[in-house]
Structure formats: C-alpha cells, structure tokens
Simulated scan of single mutants.
Amino acid sequence: MLSTLQIVTTVVVGLLVGVEFAVAFIMSRILNALPDDSSQLGHAHGGRMLGRVMPFWYIGSVVLGVIWGVAGRHDGGAGLVVTAVGLLILSVVMSVLLLVPINNRNRTWTPENRPADWREQLHRWERYHYVRVAVIIAAFTLLVTALT
C-alpha cells in the first residue's frame, strides 16, 4: 500500500511540475509574443482555466505528501518526504500571497478594462512563478530521491 501511495504522490507532483514548467517556459513565451489584445486575452483565459484546477492539484499534492510522510515515517527517506512537503506548503503559501492576487485581477481583464500596467503585473507574476517552479522541482526531486 505504501509503495502505491509513493508512486501516486510522485506522479501527481511530477505532473504538477510538468504543467507549471510548461506554463513558465512555453505558454508564457507564446502568449507574450502575441499582439497586445491577444496576449492579454490569452493570459486571462489561462488564468481562469488553470485557476479552477491548480488549487486542488497543489493541496492534493500536499495531502498526499503528508500521508506518505506519516505512513512512511520509519523509512529511510522520511526526512526527504517531510522536507518535500515543507516545500510544497511553501509553494501553496507563495501562490496564495503572491500569485493568486495578480491572477485574480488578470482573469477579469479585457482590452477595454485592463490597467495601463497590465504587462508589468504579468511580468511580476512570471517572476514569482519561476521561483515557485524551482520550489516544486526541488520538492519533486526530494520525493524521487526518497523512493530510492
């Protein structure tokens, strides 16, 4: 049972890393290369779409990590799992405090109502997102290492 939990947790966090990496290094660059209206509308749509899914994915990753940490507390990799969970919690805190407020504004913008500094706000979101991606990559790496 523990090995199934370990695999499921690792896959869920790995997929989270993949999606967030793609957002940071592929989707944002594609959207930023579009003309202003299309770029802004694409970012808004992405914010609405991913804004519905990602909270469950992030919290689910934390919950799975906590369960793994408790169930495998006597295993050799328990410290790695606890550290990974700490990093996943940090990513949730970063999301709530730094990224979600910008995303909540962005997803309601249209070419008619967007603020003059909309690009600067999106660039700030991207910088925070790069840090969050690094944090969840570190968490994923620790989980994979705990499996060995």
Results as ranks from 00 to 15, higher is better:
residue 62 V to R: 01
residue 87 L to M: 09
residue 110 T to C: 06
residue 85 V to E: 03
residue 55 P to D: 02
residue 102 I to R: 07
residue 87 L to I: 03
residue 56 F to Y: 15
residue 69 G to T: 03
residue 49 M to F: 14
residue 48 R to N: 06
residue 106 N to R: 14
residue 63 V to S: 04
residue 108 T to E: 12
residue 59 I to Q: 11
residue 80 L to D: 11
residue 61 S to P: 08
residue 80 L to Q: 12
residue 70 V to S: 04
residue 92 V to W: 08
residue 77 G to H: 10
residue 51 G to W: 00
residue 90 L to R: 06
residue 80 L to M: 15
residue 77 G to Q: 12
residue 93 V to Q: 07
residue 104 N to D: 14
residue 56 F to W: 15
residue 65 G to T: 00
residue 79 G to M: 08
residue 69 G to R: 03
residue 83 T to G: 07
residue 104 N to V: 05
residue 51 G to N: 01
residue 103 N to S: 11
residue 77 G to W: 09
residue 59 I to W: 14
residue 55 P to M: 03
residue 98 L to P: 01
residue 102 I to N: 03
residue 108 T to I: 07
residue 90 L to G: 02
residue 91 S to A: 15
residue 104 N to A: 10
residue 74 H to R: 13
residue 80 L to V: 10
residue 104 N to P: 01
residue 64 L to D: 00
residue 84 A to Y: 01
residue 65 G to W: 00
residue 80 L to P: 02
residue 78 A to W: 12
residue 62 V to D: 00
residue 98 L to K: 08
residue 86 G to C: 13
residue 99 L to V: 08
residue 85 V to L: 07
residue 60 G to L: 06
residue 70 V to Y: 05
residue 74 H to N: 13
residue 54 M to L: 15
residue 53 V to H: 11
residue 68 W to N: 00
residue 102 I to A: 04
residue 96 V to F: 10
residue 60 G to H: 04
residue 54 M to G: 09
residue 62 V to A: 10
residue 79 G to Q: 11
